[in-house]
Design a protein around this nucleic acid. Structure first.
Lengths: 213, 213
DNA sequence: TAGATTGTTAATCGATTAACAATC
DNA sequence: TAGATTGTTAATCGATTAACAATC
């Protein structure tokens, strides 16, 4: 935690992993764990795990450890996984369709309620109850429905203008799959999934692994 | 750079971004840039950019800056984007098919040469010249062809065993889309794309943005 | 030459790890 | 009580930023 009480993004990015392993322990019927156990599972140090959790409050019991169910629940609340979220996907190409079909968000409650595309061959089709609508109807839709998150799966060439349009319609959270850095107002949060950068990093390590000095 | 001369992964993960912006400058016909210009574009500090680049050698000219073409080329060499890579995708579901269809890797030379799946309805189909083969034929294929990278797009429940199998066939680089941490030998590099963790982080910030103390 | 910008060293900042008192 | 493990402070480590001499 820094001097302003803001929690560092390094901490936030570890929370989903704690959540996942706690879910696994739960499923296995294990109801007690410790920072040492979690260290084994996650690969983070026990000290770091205790530090991370204590950013949000004391969830453990000295001499005992952590109650799995309780800690799982508390982390779900911190992340906001106890609520429902409505998503729209803009760009119903490969990636957009794959996200719409994706069901692997554990038990968390994300619903893709609509897709948008400009291709008339796609408009009108449905993916898992979500209709692909014409991109020209996007603003009307966004103004009528209360949407939490816009997923941008358009080509790079139009992602900025699409992002500007969804933000103009009140969207505050963008999950961006286009390989570009969106310029957004301060109160809009953008999470990037840059597949390129991920593959390029992998390529670097593939070439340099084990032949380091 | 640390005491062993190993370059930190924070640096490596910034390289693709430099590469991308240099590519854009190139396309715009701009042939000279500086750490100050790149700072504006990338949002990283000029000082950091100079530090990063000097891990790999002095690509600039004092008093002048950097030659765009040259720096672009040098970074492509560092990342290994001047070479060709053959990929196989294991799991030809939504994500696997989307990756197979994905063409947004800039001019870099990645070729998906085959997919594998256990679903007989998918086996035999093709995606962009790559045939979907039966998962049982994977080892034979991997032993015959020289494959650089295995992309794991299977369900979580089987990703570890699939990873073990590809590694047993000599694969050293895995791009993992399954929401699980693979346990791998030290000489295998795994790059994770954990869509869950990405969306969960976004959810946290969506809920906490602007209402921080 | 004067101005600009790198390459590189030193200073700062923040994140991780270590240590241990508190306490169940 | 003795043993275990948290919560939390202090120490360390590493990454980022600042500063500036080198030099084009």
């Amino acid at each position: 935690m820094d001097k302003n009480g803001k929690i560092s993004s390094a901490v936030i990015r570890r929370l989903p992993k704690y959540y996942r392993y706690l879910g696994e322990l739960k499923k296995m019927g294990i109801n007690k764990t410790s920072s040492k156990d979690l260290s084994q599972l996650t690969g983070f140090s026990a000290s770091q795990i205790r530090q991370d959790l204590n950013n949000f409050g004391g969830f453990g019991q000295q001499g005992f450890g952590y109650d799995v169910d309780n800690l799982h629940l508390e982390i779900s609340k911190i992340l906001g996984l106890d609520k429902k979220y409505k998503l729209v996907i803009i760009g119903a190409g490969n990636i957009g369709q794959a996200i719409a079909n994706y069901t692997g968000f554990y038990e968390a409650d994300y619903e893709v309620v609509s897709l948008f595309d400009k291709n008339p061959k796609l408009v009108g089709l449905s993916i898992r109850n979500a209709i692909i609508r014409d991109i020209d109807d996007m603003e009307i839709y966004l103004n009528e429905e209360k949407i939490d998150i816009a997923v941008i799966c358009t080509p790079q060439s139009v992602c900025q203008q699409i992002a500007d349009r969804v933000v103009a319609s009140g969207i505050k959270a963008i999950w961006n799959f286009a390989p570009k850095d969106l310029k957004m107002p301060e109160d809009v949060y953008v999470e990037n999934v840059h597949l390129n950068e991920s593959l390029f990093s992998l390529t670097y390590y593939y070439n340099h692994f084990n032949n380091e000095k």
